[in-house]
């Protein structure tokens, strides 16, 4: 396997997660939503690559390609990541709706009611 590609992917997952965690810990709901989005990107990449990095290999059986595991990519993580993407997309939409509602109710965008300083 290509060590340089694996390193690149690992670094990207790490950077996304770091930024995501930083943003989730901030005080504004908007930042938290962005942070959760970044974390879900990182998680989706991570799931995908847990099926191992494979370049140019299809996940579906092809005519003329010998039937052994080294010729094919693992299709299961691809199915899992599809589910995870759909769920995180829907949940982000729900959270955004709640965030907008909170902005209307509170008049500010703070995660916690007490932190009125952000006004």
């Amino acid at each position: 396997m290509m060590p340089s590609l694996a390193l690149l992917v690992a670094v990207f997952v790490g950077v996304f997660t770091t930024c995501g965690v930083y943003l989730v810990l901030r005080r504004r709901v908007f930042d938290v939503v962005l942070g959760l989005t970044l974390i879900s990107y990182a998680v989706n990449l991570f799931i995908f690559f847990m099926g191992r990095l494979a370049v140019g290999k299809p996940p579906i059986i092809e005519a003329g390609r010998a039937l052994n595991l080294s010729n094919y990519a693992d299709p299961l993580p691809q199915a899992l990541v599809l589910t995870a993407i759909v769920i995180s997309f829907g949940m982000t939409a729900v959270l955004l709706a709640i965030a907008v509602r909170g902005q209307i109710e509170n008049g500010h965008d703070a995660v916690d009611d007490e932190s009125e300083r952000l006004k």
Binding site: V24, L36, L95, G102, D112
Partner: peptide, 12 residues
Amino acid sequence: TNAATHYVVINL
């Protein structure tokens, strides 16, 4: 709304 924000974020 505030309780729901916390609840949704921690569950996500």
